[in-house]
Design a protein around this nucleic acid. Structure first.
Lengths: 342, 342
DNA sequence: ATGAAAGCGCTAACAG
DNA sequence: CTGTTAGCGCTTTCAT
């Protein structure tokens, strides 16, 4: 009982209900200035005809596309994947579509994608930025046109909503756990200072290493990727004496570390303990399962979307900053007795 | 040197170039009916003012949004993640945006998402469908409004473009490899018949098992997910005698199988060989790395997008069906000598 | 080759 | 409470 898609327009509904197009629009929009019965008529006519608003026409006139953009550094990173899925799901509940953009860990691409998102009149943007300094300009520009909520990583001196985790507290969870396991020497294999998450984790690591009396080799600075994890492992092994534990800055790093160690004939946790960061499904299913700090991805997505929608509703709102707590999940990668305790 | 976003309109460019808005539009559109010099003037004025077309207004008038929709059963599945990333990348090259939708492996959701994509006037849809029968109705409806290219899975008796792999050939690669390894008994742990990929793989498996003289326990039918892989492993172990090899219908299944086996105290490949399917990064980094058939994801994405764009350009084109070949990648999960050879 | 003008489908003044 | 009307910014006949 459907007519051809897109062919039923507001005028048709108005005609069918015997009212003007304006009244039909108001009724459909749930506006107050319509009598209950007229509204009924219109609603029924609309349903009967299978009417659906044309979001394009509505957008042109009213400004809203009911679409949000999301920019991430790499779609493929396990953590971002989970974030994307959670965000899509959350937006979905509010009838918003998600336009996805990959910045390929590159400030130029990021700027470009941000610009086309703005051009496409998304109502708002969820952004996992690439560089805490170099990303600033493009974001500022985009913010003049549309609300932006930053997720996971914060750009320096940028006044916007933010949703993330408490990196320092999370790092403490990891390191205290390692201390309990009898670890004395550690090495950090994490992303470098280019983004705030990497920086926050490294700074916390350095503070805590001192506080907890751990011996830290100069840490290996790298990116959040499997490849980087592999490189880090390689370098650590090449240096000679293995540390008691390798603290990875993300689960994908940890996976890279472990897989390369294995290729080099070293076992986790028998030869060295390894921890992850993020709590992706990867950490759970990997062999060995990886001790990590679990990010509450759904909560992060929920907050981010809620911040975005409320800012769309009222752009003047003060910027909010939400840091959700993580939870330590202990798994096999740190469970066996170590071979190298001093 | 930027004015406020979205504030420069075609009229401004026309004024600056000293021509009419119609001429400006034609010049910007690269249309023929404009003199070379006038075109130059307009182009320069546009650049100088930082003009950018308003895609919404253009869409309302011209119909095209330069946006494609993509619907997948689960964003999180490793294979779909890679597909999404490749498609986003490919579309990007043509200046198309990607609206992403998760159907949550559910026909109702799928129908709904397809409908909102159509409402949002995407120019085309890339679809990994959920059910080779039950998905048909919604897809047919959507196809009346917009071109659809199916990826990976084909809905029965539906006349549309399709891009996928040769499941039968891929399964042959896997099984012949196992035979070479001396395997005699195998079990299939794969998705059930609800989608064509699952069905194709199972049918090929059954044919080949006979052809190759393998002993196949009744296969374990399941979904494409880590959890299903785990369940399958559990059931296989519970049955008693372990087969020589477990053939998973996807990499995520294989990972589930291996992780559960490990929990049950069984080792891969020492106790049983396991193969994956898809060739995701997961198969490469897992411990042990998993023997699998590699899908040429980038080629699939490239073909799918190219099919879509050419069909958008000419909806009357005959439907194309492209099956790209896979490659066997041998890794540790099938490399060690087996313990159970008969 | 160029310009004037008519909408695309909808919402929001502004009148009544 | 309801209807009339003016656009949102752009593309595209239809004249010239």
């Amino acid at each position: 009982m459907e007519s051809l898609p897109q062919s039923v327009k507001l005028q048709d509904v108005a005609d069918a209900a015997g009212v003007s197009i304006a009244t039909a629009s108001r009724a459909l929009g749930g506006k107050k200035r319509v009598s209950a019965e007229t509204a009924q008529q219109v609603l029924q006519a609309a349903k009967r005809l299978g009417y659906r608003v044309d979001p394009i026409a509505r957008a042109l006139r009213a400004g809203s596309t009911r679409t949000a953009g999301m920019v991430v550094p790499v779609i493929g990173n396990a953590h971002f994947v989970e974030l994307i899925a959670a965000v899509e799901n959350e937006l979905q509940a509010y009838g918003f579509e998600l336009i996805l953009a990959d910045s390929h860990g590159n400030v130029q691409q990021e700027a470009k994608r941000l610009r086309t998102l703005v051009d496409h009149r998304v109502d708002g943007v969820l952004l996992v930025s690439h560089d805490s300094k170099k990303s600033a300009a493009a974001i500022r520009e985009a913010m003049r046109a549309v609300p932006i909520v930053q997720i996971d990583r914060k750009v320096d001196r940028l006044h916007s909503d933010f949703v993330g985790i408490d990196d320092a507290a999370a790092m403490r969870l990891i390191l205290e756990h390692l201390v309990e396991r009898g670890v004395r020497t550690v090495v950090l294999a994490s992303a470098d200072d280019a983004n705030s998450a990497g920086r926050g984790r490294r700074e916390a690591y350095e503070r805590l290493v001192t506080e907890l009396g751990l011996l830290a080799d100069p840490h290996v600075i790298d990116a959040f990727s499997v490849e980087s994890g592999r490189d880090a492992a390689e370098e650590i092994v090449r240096r000679g004496e293995l540390p008691d534990a390798i603290v990875a800055g993300s689960d994908v790093n940890a996976v890279g570390v472990i897989s390369r160690l294995r290729e080099l004939g070293l076992r986790v946790p028998a030869d060295v303990l390894v921890t992850g960061f993020d709590g992706t499904q990867l950490s759970e299913i990997y062999n060995p399962p990886i001790t990590t700090v679990q990010q509450p991805v759904r909560a992060v997505a929920r907050n981010a979307v809620s911040f975005l929608l409320s800012r769309i509703a009222d752009p003047a709102e003060p910027a909010r900053d939400s840091r959700i707590n993580t939870e330590l999940v202990i798994r096999a990668s740190t469970s066996a007795p170590m071979g190298h305790t001093r």
